[in-house]
C-alpha cells in the first residue's frame, strides 16, 4: 500500500524549480526518451505529485540516468520543464539521501 504523503508534496511545492504538476501522464516523453527508460519522466512525476517519496527514492538510479537532453520537452504537450524537474529531484535526493548538505 502506498500512502500519499502531503509533507513531501509540500516540500516539492516550496521550490520554484518543479513544474511537473502540469503533467497529464500522456507518456510522450517516455516514448521518445533516448535512454528508453520506462519510468522517466511520466511515472516519476506521478510519484512526486502523489507524494510517494519512497517510490521516488526507489528510483534513484533512473533519476540519475537522465541525459537532461530535453528531447522529451520537444514532445511534451504541456510544456513541462522535464529536465529541470529531474535535476530538482537529483538535488532533493542529494540532500535527503546522499546527505550532500550545504557546505
Amino acid at each position: 500500500m502506498a500512502r500519499v504523503n502531503t509533507d513531501f508534496i509540500d516540500e516539492v511545492r516550496r521550490s520554484d524549480g518543479f513544474d511537473a504538476t502540469a503533467c497529464m501522464h500522456c507518456g510522450q516523453c517516455t516514448a521518445i526518451c533516448p535512454m528508453g527508460l520506462d519510468l522517466l519522466p511520466r511515472r516519476l512525476f506521478f510519484y512526486v505529485g502523489a507524494g510517494l517519496e519512497d517510490k521516488v527514492i526507489e528510483n534513484l538510479e533512473t533519476i540519475f540516468s537522465c541525459l537532461l537532453c530535453r528531447l522529451c520537452e520537444e514532445n511534451c504537450p504541456r510544456d513541462v520543464h522535464i529536465a529541470e524537474d529531474v535535476r530538482f529531484l537529483r538535488n532533493y535526493i542529494n540532500r535527503k539521501v546522499h546527505k550532500l548538505a550545504r557546505i
Binding site: 533516448p34 535512454m35 540519475f64 540516468s65 537522465c66 541525459l67 537532461l68 537532453c69 528531447l71 520537444e74
Partner: peptide, 14 residues
Amino acid sequence: KMTFCCGGPVESLF
C-alpha cells in the same frame, strides 16, 4: 530541435 543525445551526460555515472 529534435537531435539525439550522444550519451555523454551520463558518462560520469553510467
